[in-house]
Design a protein around this nucleic acid. Structure first.
Lengths: 240, 240
DNA sequence: GCGACACTTCGATGGCCGGCGAAGGATCCC
DNA sequence: GGGATCCTTCGCCGGCCATCGAAGTGTCGC
């Protein structure tokens, strides 16, 4: 009997992509890339605990499937997720995946901190991310529009007040502003080119600092709390 | 060398769940369940093109992992997706999965039809689904609120005009109303308990009919076009 | 140019798992 | 109760693929 790929069901073939993510080694690699920072093949190999050859094979598969992209820099090859679609799928999977068992107090503290502020691919997530989206909606800086959200006139003015070029951000091929379901809060935070630019600026200004280099975890600073209150009118605390 | 599960990265373990979805047989089963209608083990076996024993093993794994649920009815066991989280993850995966090669004119017509109106798990999706959400936003029946959307007073009245008990729908454990990214339109349609109830009512009224029993594909009827225009003020056509 | 480094390709191996046949419960109908 | 239907459990097999060692290619620093 032939396999039942009948018309009428989904037009996409879920299995190949899911199969790729389903290998523990590749999953660790993709998870590491969720932080948004490009990583070299060697770093990914070390993170996943495999040899360079094995890592190379895996990265080749992920590349062929279009899940990741690569940039050559001398003898290094830096890998990154292919796009927001991929980050979104990984986060959606995280939502239905069992939490990895917490082994130590240190880990559980780290997990709580991760729920407070982190990056999701390239934009702000966690309690802080949700709070910012809520504040933007409260002040009617966003309205629901074509493809997710759009900035209102006052919203655009506020974002430009952060030093960003809204018109240029609109030009990007990726989506401009859309909700992204937060896997710790189970409520949406803001994604898209404008969210990425805002997040980059906030980190640049020292409102958030990475807990560890190349890590997703963020820590809110004093100046961040002040800045978020002033610009967005939302109140955060230092502690997680 | 030990595998590098360090704290600071995602707290969830993506691989096991992705691995489950990554098997072609299980993927077909899950995809079939995306239509929302519970299916018996035998039907799923036939759809996937495997014997009953094999299907039983797969369903056992999916059950253990909490991806699907089961209801016993006599000698039949009806399976359904465990919840919207799972449906969301599957749709997110579909978004980054290559389109299955279209083999025939008939299939490509079918694919186009699927993009026009279908169910996503248990709520309306496709062009029609996006149009309904747009209309509801235009008329300010929805506002962005806690956990996604909330019905405004006029919105609640309108929905109750369809014969639904809004207060009862709010009580459900699942989310009430939230955006769900449409994988053909790449724009959100409405999900949640209220979307499910609205969709069920619309199908019951004959506004939409299933293209084939147990299938995701929907066809808009004449009365559906009239009803949608009257209630939501949105204009759809018969053809895909 | 020469060694060191980052990464890839090749080939071989071993373990895992999806598949089915056979047999065993469970339920329905008459 | 007896046969049919639906589903599960058990045991075995076969193929696939993740892994590594060894060797090859490209790049940097000196």
């Amino acid at each position: 009997m032939s396999r039942g790929y009948r018309d009428g069901m989904s037009n996409a073939d879920l299995a190949p992509v899911a199969r790729l993510i389903g290998d523990p080694t590749r999953a660790v690699m993709l998870d590491a890339l969720l932080a948004g920072r490009p990583l070299a093949a060697g770093e990914l190999a070390r993170l996943a605990g495999v040899t360079a050859q094995t890592a190379s094979a895996h990265l080749g598969l992920l590349l062929d499937a279009g899940l990741i992209g690569v940039e050559k820099q001398g003898r290094h090859r830096y890998f990154r997720l292919a796009g927001e679609d991929v980050a979104g799928a990984l986060e959606a999977l995280a939502l239905i995946s069992p939490a990895r068992p917490v082994r130590s107090l240190r880990q559980s503290q780290s997990a709580r901190a991760l729920g407070y502020a982190r990056t999701c691919y390239d934009h702000l997530a966690g309690v802080a991310g949700v709070a910012v989206l809520d504040a933007m909606l409260d002040q009617e800086w966003l309205r629901t529009g074509e493809g997710g959200y759009d900035l209102t006139v006052t919203g655009a003015a506020a974002v430009e007040g952060l030093g960003l070029d809204v018109a240029a951000l609109r030009e990007r091929r990726r989506s401009f502003a859309r909700p992204c379901l937060d896997w710790t809060e189970r409520r949406p935070h803001l994604a898209g080119s404008v969210a990425a630019a805002m997040t980059a600026t906030m980190i640049e200004r020292g409102w958030f600092v990475r807990r560890r280099a190349g890590d997703r975890g963020l820590r809110v600073t004093e100046s961040g709390i002040a800045g978020l209150a002033e610009v967005f009118g939302c109140r955060l605390t230092l502690a997680a």
